[in-house]
């Protein structure tokens, strides 16, 4: 008998011998791997260690929105059109964030972490993965009310310049404010959130007295290093996007950046339980996911 295969049939045949058949989803996975390699090669952003399902969703959505026929076509555009890549980077930065999300966490910081921060003459806070800045302003408000803001510097960083531009402006749509104000009160707010911003038509802008203490800067947790010694690091709902390898890198950075007995705050569904650096921390607030760096032995 004489077999006659073209290359793709041969590929299917070989896959078949391994007990699986190549289907559309296997192909899509392969194409996405190539896309991530291209992005890393061309722009240095390493999404290869991102949790895949949410990333895949965004890629497929971008393919559809831009009227492309496949991920491979998107790959080509990413390689040759930086503007198109920026569009995708914007897709990657869309998150649902709010002020004082999980108010009980901010309440715990106010009631139990601030008393430790008070012992420092200068307080450095790193808000890693600040996105559009809502939480950075939240922590600034909290520090102001605890009379700590004047000796604090908040470094709010993100890899995404588009998000940082929004964060730097400190202006948000007014229709979002009502739930923020509610969260603020539940977090132990002492006055009214409106004391901290001005209203211009449909937006609110936070006072420059808060902004003066926040440095918004580009920092990429995927590849950049420690840049200062920190007393408190907030990194909430960022690790959920990373695979285990990248989570370990990032927690390692935090460990190196924190002062002796410094604090680390994670998102409510994140933990250090399975992290290689977890042993360097002790639980300070279990429900609030607040950790404290142990004494160096």
């Amino acid at each position: 008998m004489k077999y006659k295969f073209n290359v793709s049939q041969l590929y299917l045949f070989l896959n078949g011998t391994q007990g699986r058949t190549m289907n559309q989803l296997d192909l899509q996975n392969f194409e996405i791997n190539q896309l991530l390699e291209s992005i890393y090669f061309r722009y240095g952003y390493d999404f290869r260690n991102y949790a895949r399902a949410s990333l895949e969703r965004k890629v497929i959505k971008r393919v559809a929105l831009s009227g492309l026929s496949s991920v491979t076509e998107m790959n080509q555009k990413v390689l040759y059109e930086p503007e198109f890549f920026n569009l995708f980077l914007k897709d990657m930065s869309v998150t649902v964030t709010e002020m004082f999300r999980d108010p009980y966490v901010f309440k715990k910081i106010r009631q139990q972490v601030c008393s430790h921060l008070k012992t420092y003459s200068r307080i450095n806070i790193w808000h890693a993965g600040c996105a559009t800045g809502e939480e950075a302003y939240s922590i600034a408000v909290l520090l102001a009310e605890e009379d700590l803001l004047k000796r604090s510097r908040i470094y709010a960083t993100d890899y995404n310049n588009h998000s940082l531009e929004i964060a730097k402006k400190g202006s948000y749509a007014i229709d979002k404010i009502a739930p923020y104000a509610q969260n603020y009160l539940e977090a132990g707010g002492q006055t009214c959130l409106s004391d901290y911003y001005q209203v211009h038509q449909q937006t609110i802008s936070f006072h420059s007295s808060l902004q003066d203490h926040i440095t918004f800067a580009n920092h990429n947790l995927m590849k950049d290093q420690v840049f200062a010694q920190m007393h408190l690091i907030m990194c909430r709902n960022v690790l959920i996007y990373f695979n285990n390898a990248l989570q370990e890198r990032v927690v390692g950075l935090f460990k190196d950046s924190l002062v002796h007995r410094g604090f680390l705050v994670l998102g409510e569904k994140e933990s250090l339980e399975f992290n290689a650096h977890g042993k360097a921390f002790e639980e300070f607030g279990k429900n609030e996911r607040i950790y404290r760096k142990k004494s160096d032995l």
């Binding site: 949790a51 895949r52 949410s54 998150t95 649902v96």
Partner: peptide
Amino acid sequence: ERNATFSLSIDA
């Protein structure tokens, strides 16, 4: 995820 584990996101 494709390896039958859960992941979470706070995407839009």
